[in-house]
């Protein structure tokens, strides 16, 4: 019995060690490449919401973490988790900020978005980072499927809340796309809240230390 136990234990341990070692080696080999890919991906997204020509800093590194404390109750509770924001500067003077946010009331849960806002409070671009909306219906918020998301560009809010920032069905200026109301409504609300928050806390945000090199 002792022999059997010993043999099994040893064989299994050897295999485990070898396998882990292999994985470890591959991991160390690919680590840098993966990091690079991630940054490129992020940069690509950022460049979509803020025109890369307008800034000249390493935007990925100029990143802050903050907790949004907006007016909307539901959004507040769900946005307590810190979000990242990327600050674009031109020769060290701030030009715009890309803020990640979460629309909690999507049709199928959270919609993660990133909103680019110029210092003037004008939206420079919005993109959806992640969502679980119904394919063919709610997923039109993706640029790949529909250009609807670009309607935010160059919009700004007047007052908080701004009654125009609603979908057409609710009497606002954003058209909902056919068949779905809930998803655009959620996105509109989230963008609105983010912009409103930005307007109110512009100074503090820009003044925050650039403390998050790594985004997860």
């Amino acid at each position: 019995m002792r022999k059997a136990i010993q043999k099994n234990a040893n064989v299994l341990a050897i295999f485990a060690i070898v396998c882990t070692a292999v994985v470890g080696i591959v991991h160390s080999l690919t680590k840098d490449e993966i990091e690079l890919q991630k940054q490129q991906q992020l940069l690509k997204t950022l460049s979509q919401v803020i025109d890369p020509a307008t800034y000249n800093n390493e935007i990925i590194n100029d990143c802050i973490m903050f907790s949004q404390t907006g007016s909307d109750k539901a959004a507040k509770s769900k946005n307590q988790t810190p979000h990242a924001a990327y600050i674009a500067t031109y020769n060290d003077s701030p030009v715009a900020m890309a803020i990640t946010a979460t629309a909690p009331d999507g049709y199928n849960g959270n919609i993660d978005i990133i909103v680019g806002i110029k210092t003037s409070g004008v939206v420079s671009g919005v993109r959806v980072l992640d969502h679980n909306e119904t394919p063919g219906l709610g997923d039109k918020i993706e640029l790949k499927r529909n250009s609807w998301i670009t309607t935010f560009t160059d919009k700004k809010i007047n007052g908080n809340p701004d009654p125009r920032w609603k979908v057409a069905k609710d009497g606002g200026m954003f058209d909902q796309f056919t068949g779905a109301t809930i998803t655009p409504r959620a996105v509109v609300k989230a963008v609105h809240n983010t912009v409103a928050y930005f307007n109110e806390n512009k100074e503090t945000l820009f003044a925050q230390p650039r403390n998050c090199g790594d985004i997860e």
């Binding site: 485990a16 292999v22 994985v23 591959v26 991991h27 690919t30 490449e33 993966i34």
Partner: peptide
Amino acid sequence: LIIASFVTCVQLLMNAYTF
């Protein structure tokens, strides 16, 4: 174990080269 190792390797490789 063997399979898991290979899968993890594949995963890492894909992550690196077909992000």
